[in-house]
Design a protein around this nucleic acid. Structure first.
Lengths: 148, 148
DNA sequence: AAAATACTTTACGTTTACGTAAACTTTATC
DNA sequence: GATAAAGTTTACGTAAACGTAAAGTATTTT
């Protein structure tokens, strides 16, 4: 099963480049469930996976609350209760719709960036042309005439 | 040029399903620049486009500050200054990288949703099978025997 | 002219996702 | 056994993105 190891808070924090404060906060919000040895938190590889999912969720614009809902829902889904299974399928469908929207947004953004980039390059080319013309003018009339 | 119309705050708010408060806030943060007739704001179609971009940015997980940076950068880019042009190209490249990351995240999420959905359907199928077996059992032994 | 409607500014309140500091244990190192 | 290193709790602070009155102006409708 996976890597079957356990992790300290700073190991996880370092691996995913977050602060320990964040990790503790995620536990506080019920997104992670480390066990304890005395006071110290011990994170399982399941926690590690969840942390990864949390961060990906954030990059995709999901709030911690949303991510937690998904986690909880999935946990209840595993209970095998029919109602929960159907609820999960429904939720998955809605999330898919969200992802579709995001993909559209990204595609749009990429197109606009394409045209923006094209315009930049055109403008740059224009500038270069002017520069070359200036250079040429200098060549033909090397001594510039100063006029008050 | 576009639709060459002007818009009231509530027109825009309604069209994009945001509150007027939000629109005013975006102005406050320097993302929109309506003119005034007396006190009242008058939004141009450029503002309308920007509002659309703001909201898309939000869906893509961009902060207002990030979006504003892009707006400002683009405005300065239009000045045609070479340094600004190069800066814009650089920024575009970085944004593209971000979008790539997001696309990866989405693809990953979709894969995981596929397997999650498959598991749900399997579990549901299991439940249906059990139900059918129960029904069959009832048929063969129609009178259920109650035992204290 | 009174009332309703649409706008405005000012300003304090709220949620999310942590940052940051203080004060305290526990474990490892010299 | 002192001290540094890594962990802990408690708790106040903060930035972002608005929400939510409160109180006033301007215009349109009745």
């Amino acid at each position: 099963m996976d890597i079957k190891k356990t992790y300290s808070i700073s190991e996880l924090a370092k691996e995913f480049d977050v602060t320990t404060r964040s990790v503790r906060f995620y536990e506080d919000q019920g997104l992670l469930h480390p066990t304890r040895r005395g006071q110290t938190r011990i994170f399982s590889s399941k926690d590690r996976v969840r942390l990864k999912l949390i961060l990906r969720g954030k990059r995709m614009g999901f709030s911690l609350a949303e991510t937690k809902e998904l986690f909880d829902l999935w946990d209840e889904t595993l209970s095998g209760n029919e109602k929960q299974l159907l609820l999960m399928l429904d939720t998955l469908a809605r999330k898919r719709a969200q992802l579709e929207q995001q993909k559209n947004d990204i595609a749009q953004a990429e197109m606009e960036m394409d045209t923006a980039e094209a315009r930049c390059r055109e403008a740059l080319a224009e500038l270069q042309k002017k520069k070359r013309q200036q250079a040429k003018a200098k060549k033909e009339e090397p001594e510039s005439i100063e006029q008050k």
